[in-house]
């Protein structure tokens, strides 16, 4: 705590950097994973190959993946963001595909029977009903990105990992502790915000009450 008080501005700068990396990664990851998830819910046979590939990335140890990307993208933020995007694909694609596929087929058929086009069915029925599951995936991916960003300090991406690695090499336990505490706090706050969003969307769409 004394460390945090003494180094406020530096910690703040690293926190912002940390959130930037994690936030940018999540945003890019969602932009890629969402269309892929929708595609899988439509073209079922793609599920195996796509989730299999995403699964391979998921199982590569993070440090190894960072190391593999350095020769291609160099040090710093670029390989970090790419690695985080790759890591979160499995969770995000799977939740999007599952969320849409699990919408009650009777509802989808009711929508067809009433004369909705494919696009109308998707935006007016399937998507609103899939939102809770899709957002659950986003929550998991966000928590993971915030955690992994810490390790990215090792390849010069910055962020709160810097505090932790410095602390380790200089045997400053309170510095390590401070870094870890702030990372946890960021992760908790992000999760809380997304949980509130999930609940708000759920109550707007009536899905939560319907699901419970």
């Amino acid at each position: 705590m004394t460390y945090l008080l003494a180094n406020g501005p530096a910690v703040w700068r690293l926190s912002v950097q940390h959130m930037e990396i994690a936030g940018l990664s999540c945003l890019l990851a969602i932009l890629i994973a969402f269309p892929l998830g929708v595609l899988l819910s439509r073209v079922r046979w793609l599920t195996g190959p796509v989730l299999g590939t995403a699964g391979i990335f998921y199982t590569i140890p993070s440090l190894a993946l960072f190391a593999l990307l350095i020769p291609i993208l160099g040090l710093g933020m670029k390989p970090t963001v790419l690695a985080l995007v790759l890591y979160s694909q499995l969770t995000l694609i799977r939740n999007t595909a599952v969320g849409i596929s699990e919408v009650d087929p009777a509802l989808v058929e009711a929508a067809r029977g009433m004369g909705m086009t494919g696009v109308q069915r998707f935006w007016r029925v399937e998507m609103p009903l899939a939102v809770p599951v899709v957002l659950a995936g986003v929550r998991t991916a966000t928590a993971m990105a915030i955690g992994l960003t810490t390790i990215a300090a090792y390849i010069g991406a910055g962020g709160l990992g810097v505090l932790i690695f410095q602390g380790i090499s200089t045997a400053h336990t309170d510095q390590v502790l401070a870094g870890a505490l702030v990372v946890s706090a960021i992760a908790l706050v992000a999760d809380l915000v997304l949980a509130l969003l999930q609940r708000a969307l759920g109550s707007v769409t009536g899905v939560r009450a319907w699901a419970s």
């Binding site: 009777a106 509802l107 058929e109 929508a111 009433m114 004369g115 909705m116 086009t117 029925v125 009903l129």
Partner: peptide, 29 residues
């Protein structure tokens, strides 16, 4: 699509869209 909009379709109660109000459900077509 046109054909279906001109024919009323009722299925079991599960056919109501849970995320829409009663009014929205009815006003769909």
């Amino acid at each position: 699509i046109q054909l279906r909009r001109s024919i009323g379709y009722v299925i079991q109660e599960i056919g109501l869209f849970p995320h829409m109000t009663v009014a929205k459900n009815i006003a769909l077509v």
